[in-house]
Design a protein around this nucleic acid. Structure first.
Length: 289
DNA sequence: CACCAGGCAAGCC
DNA sequence: GGCTTGCATGGT
């Protein structure tokens, strides 16, 4: 990777294994939207960013070297060698195809609070609707952010949400999930759950702690482990992964627990990466439907 | 071609 | 099995 600065834009060359569509459309995040064929714009970590990738050159618009160094290089997991990960996973023929299909996926390192709320909202929900609910949440309760001549909104803090009533929250149309969001905010604000502090916990303890939060079950906890705490052996199994795994690796229906155990055995420390390649590949190709 | 009714969706309790 | 909501689906 090579970094140069022109005006207020960060330009990266010699970037491998990175594709914006693969990364933003593989179901891990909900606040990035396509601008044109080569770029996306999103809000994350309290900042707005337009990112473009064309002919192997990444441009991050109107940002700073400090923000790149402190935030974006880690958010996009740029220091990690995904080529090595893919070549190891490709020993399995199914994964080989999945890696070739979603070759540019990177697992984002997202803010833990945003990730927690986002995946509480994701329960029994489709991506377009998840995105709409989160957008309403930000527009109604986030802080205004001015960027490249437009206004965007940050993801509202736990403190902000904890002060709301269920009636206030009804504007986001989250349905039965609204009470979980409110309860989660109160647990975080009240110190019952320390989202930073629990980073030191083992995977098992971290998951157990997160599952104390209402609205966080096995699957949602696995997503938070993978997308916010960089526990890359986490293998979230939703209905898609269940179908995909059954299709490729089993003769018949399986219990989620059994699929998870099988995946842990098969993919080990790379389970989370495998999950993302499989999900993106399987969903786009409607595997198991 | 509207329009409506019932099903159901990246789960959790 | 119930939960909120929105929407793709198929029937009229």
């Amino acid at each position: 990777m090579n970094l140069t600065i022109s005006n207020d834009n960060i330009v990266l060359t010699d970037i491998r294994d990175f594709d914006l569509t693969h990364t933003f459309e593989c179901g891990q995040c909900f606040r990035w939207n396509r601008v044109d064929d080569y770029s996306y714009l999103g809000v994350a970590m309290g900042k707005a960013l337009k990112i473009e990738l064309h002919d192997g050159v990444v441009v991050m618009y109107d940002t700073s070297v400090d923000d790149f160094n402190d935030i974006w290089q880690y958010y996009f997991d740029l220091p990690r060698d995904y080529g090595k990960i893919k070549s190891r996973l490709s020993e399995d023929v199914v994964l080989k195809n999945a890696c070739e299909y979603g070759w540019g996926i990177r697992i984002l390192k997202q803010d833990s609070w945003e990730c927690l709320v986002s995946f509480i909202i994701s329960a029994s929900n489709h991506i377009p609707r998840i995105k709409k609910i989160i957008q309403l949440l930000c527009e109604n309760f986030g802080d205004e952010l001015s960027y490249m001549g437009n206004t965007y909104f940050t993801f509202p803090s736990a403190d902000t949400i904890a002060k709301l009533t269920l009636d206030d929250l009804s504007v986001i149309r989250a349905g039965f999930r609204d009470k979980y969001i409110l309860a989660a905010a109160k647990m975080v604000t009240g110190g019952e759950i320390n989202l930073c502090g629990i980073n030191r916990l083992s995977n098992a303890d971290l998951k157990k702690t997160l599952m104390q939060i209402p609205g966080v079950g096995n699957k949602v906890a696995d997503c938070i482990l993978l997308f916010a705490y960089a526990r890359h052996n986490s293998f979230p199994v939703d209905v898609w992964l269940k179908r995909i795994m059954e299709h490729y690796y089993f003769e018949n229906k399986q219990r989620i627990d059994d699929i998870q155990a099988f995946s842990t055995e098969k993919f080990g420390e790379l389970g989370g990466f495998a999950q993302q390649y499989l999900f993106y590949y399987g969903r786009d190709n409607k595997i198991g439907l």
